[in-house]
């Protein structure tokens, strides 16, 4: 078993702590409100309810879920360090990597609840025949959240102050969610279109937000729409996409675990 007694206890405690966290409740409520609003608007489209609603919800999720996940993860370790409880946790009979993993799992469960409730409520707003398309968004949206939660958790293990971690996750959110695509666009313009379509497609899918967005576009509107955007050529296979998701989820966690292992838990 990956998690021992301490790890399992920590997962439960993390989940309880997140569910009592006002910020998490507020952001979940906001997600529910916006997703339901989009669904309500989509209901007016009669037969095409899910066709209208799902892409808008994907766009909403692309912006909101990474932010929620990064904020959820950013104080996982550094928060304990600032409260002087990191040493207390690590003085329990537990491996350091297990502490990081347990914190990640506990927070991931809270994220699952937030995404599940948000998309679930949005689906319920639609007529029964159109709900499946929205419910199908839940697993990939959870992957997106899991990847950004992993990045946030790694940042929490790499930083010494919560304020630094908070600033870094906000900067990263802007970089990966807003400016990354703009950067690719700028590179295209700067090179006067010299970048090949394959390269562009690869660059887009190397970013977890891009990987999610293109994956969703393919499943919702088909490859034709992507071809028109010049992205269909080299979209990764399912196996490669799975590998990319795994890399984005496991990679940062390994970096975080290594940082936690290397760092002295007490420096006073």
């Amino acid at each position: 078993m990956i998690l021992g007694r301490v790890g399992r206890a920590l997962v439960v405690s993390e989940l309880v702590e997140r569910l009592r966290d006002r910020w998490v409740l507020i952001i979940t409520a906001l997600f529910v409100l916006l997703a339901s609003g989009i669904s309500l608007y989509g209901r007016s489209a009669a037969d095409a309810q899910s066709t209208v609603t799902a892409p808008s919800i994907v766009t909403l999720s692309t912006f909101l879920v990474p932010l929620v996940a990064l904020v959820l993860g950013h104080d996982a370790i550094v928060g304990e360090r600032e409260r002087n409880t990191l040493g207390l946790l690590l003085s329990l009979p537990v491996r350091r990597g297990e502490v990081l993993l347990a914190k990640y799992i506990g927070r991931a469960l809270a994220l699952c609840l937030a995404v599940g409730v948000g998309l679930g409520v949005a689906a319920m707003v639609l007529e029964p025949g159109h709900r499946a398309a929205l419910l199908a968004l839940i697993p990939p949206t959870l992957l997106l959240g899991a990847a950004f939660l992993s990045i946030g958790t790694a940042i929490s293990a790499l930083t010494r102050h919560r304020a630094t971690a908070a600033s870094l996750v906000v900067v990263l959110w802007f970089l990966l969610v807003f400016f990354y695509d703009l950067g690719i666009l700028a590179a295209l313009v700067a090179t006067d279109g010299a970048l090949s379509q394959d390269t562009v497609a690869w660059l887009v899918t190397l970013n977890p937000a891009g990987l999610y967005r293109t994956g969703m576009l393919v499943s919702l509107v088909g490859t034709e729409a992507l071809s028109q955007m010049g992205l269909a050529v080299a979209l990764p296979s399912t196996a490669l996409k799975a590998a990319l998701w795994a890399a984005w989820i496991i990679g940062p966690l390994l970096v975080g675990a290594a940082a936690l292992h290397r760092r002295q838990a007490v420096t006073g």
């Binding site: 007694r5 301490v6 399992r8 206890a9 920590l10 439960v12 405690s13 309880v16 702590e17 009592r20 966290d21 006002r22 928060g79 600032e82 409260r83 002087n84 409880t85 207390l88 329990l92 537990v94």
Partner: peptide, 19 residues
């Protein structure tokens, strides 16, 4: 030591009893 602000004293203690 400060512990998590939004947990109750009982929840903090129960975490450690479980652990």
């Amino acid at each position: 030591v400060a512990f998590a602000d939004n947990l109750s004293g009982r929840q903090v203690m129960r975490f450690f009893t479980r652990a």
